[in-house]
């Protein structure tokens, strides 16, 4: 009798978990649809990757909003016929970036990953200089939580996409195979105005890698190695969030991981031709405008071309055709305004 009861309970439990799984699949899908449809959205970029052909991206730039404004993929295609994409969003978390890159690797095989490091270094909330090992413990707990959350969202992104639940329409509830929208910007976020910097940067206290930045950078590196991708750490030019301390921190990290580190804030004149803070920033030094982004793209172009290990893929006609059209549309829009 006891055994029968236990078996019934186990069956009940499995049935319940099945229902939960089905509902999770359904809602993940619904939210994915909505995510694609809405024109804003933190997770939009990862969805838009689905509008690109499989294995058609050679260069991936990932980071927070800084990276979004510093790189123009359309230009890289126009000049050198290299396909690239920018993945980024404001207040990016290292774990988020890691899992998004992992998702992208499912359908794409980029040869170079440029990881823009602004999001992983910042001011630590150290109260007692880690006298009680509070930071270590917090970091560990956060890591486990990020891993759990990241892995669950990887399969069932309900919690990741739920913010878009607000703008739902009824049609979303019944779409099974969402179609990704094409994006001619390839992740680039346009800023047109010019605002020269006026304030001097306030020095931050307790600067360090934050939010388990090191662990996740290492994981991203391992992911890249598994996928024959070369990871390069870059620091996009910015006045608001760059300090020499941060430069040294990332330099140490790059040496630890054995990866290249290119800091565009050091020797900026040599690395980026004609760059000037008076003309190239949209908001006083945090984000670049189109002029600045174009110049940085040139610098990145040189970086890629000078890399011995890189050789761009030869693509099918359909991919070339798509990129030509997208690039044309992009420049037409830029010139039109």
């Amino acid at each position: 009798m006891e055994v029968k009861k236990h078996v019934l309970h186990i069956l009940r439990f499995l049935c319940f978990m099945l229902i939960v799984t089905i509902l999770l699949c359904y809602f993940s899908n619904v939210l994915k649809v909505n995510e694609i449809r809405s024109s804003t959205g933190r997770n939009q970029v990862v969805q838009e990757f689905n509008a690109e052909y499989k294995d058609s991206i050679d260069v991936l730039l990932a980071g927070d909003s800084t990276s979004l404004n510093s790189f123009v993929p359309a230009k890289l295609w126009k000049d050198e016929k290299i396909t690239s994409y920018a993945l980024g969003y404001g207040y990016a978390y290292p774990s988020e970036i890691y899992f998004d890159i992992k998702k992208i690797f499912e359908r794409q095989k980029p040869k170079i990953l440029l990881l823009e490091v602004s999001f992983m270094v910042g001011e630590l909330e150290v109260i007692d200089n880690n006298l009680y090992c509070q930071d270590t413990v917090n970091g560990l707990v956060d890591y486990f939580n990020d891993e759990l959350l990241g892995n669950i969202n990887y399969i069932f992104p309900v919690m990741k996409y739920k913010s878009s639940f607000k703008d739902k329409t009824l049609g979303d509830m019944f779409t099974i195979k969402p179609k990704a929208l094409n994006n001619i910007y390839k992740g680039y976020s346009i800023k047109k105005n010019v605002l020269a910097p006026s304030e001097k940067l306030k020095p931050e206290k307790n600067t360090d890698l934050i939010n388990n930045g090191e662990i996740y950078t290492r994981k991203i590196k391992n992911l890249c190695e598994k996928n024959n991708c070369k990871m390069i750490l870059i620091f996009a030019p910015q006045i608001a969030c760059w300090t020499e301390v941060k430069h040294n921190i990332i330099l140490n990290l790059s040496e630890k991981l054995g990866v290249e580190f290119v800091d565009y804030n050091v020797n900026t004149d040599k690395l980026i031709k004609n760059f000037s803070w008076n003309t190239d920033t949209a908001d006083g030094g945090t984000h670049l405008n189109y002029s600045g982004a174009t110049k940085v793209t040139n610098a990145i172009k040189n970086l890629i071309l000078n890399d011995d290990s890189f050789c761009k893929s030869s693509f099918d006609q359909k991919i070339i055709k798509k990129w030509n059209k997208d690039s044309e549309d992009f420049f037409r829009e830029m010139e039109g305004n």
Binding site: I19, V20, L23, F27, L31, R42, Y91, Y93, V158, M159, K160, K162, S163, F165
Partner: peptide
């Protein structure tokens, strides 16, 4: 199920 999915879909957590 109601409570679980209410929390997952309408819980006020996340970056926003």
């Amino acid at each position: 199920l109601f409570l679980l999915f209410s929390v997952l879909l309408t819980g006020a957590f996340g970056v926003e």
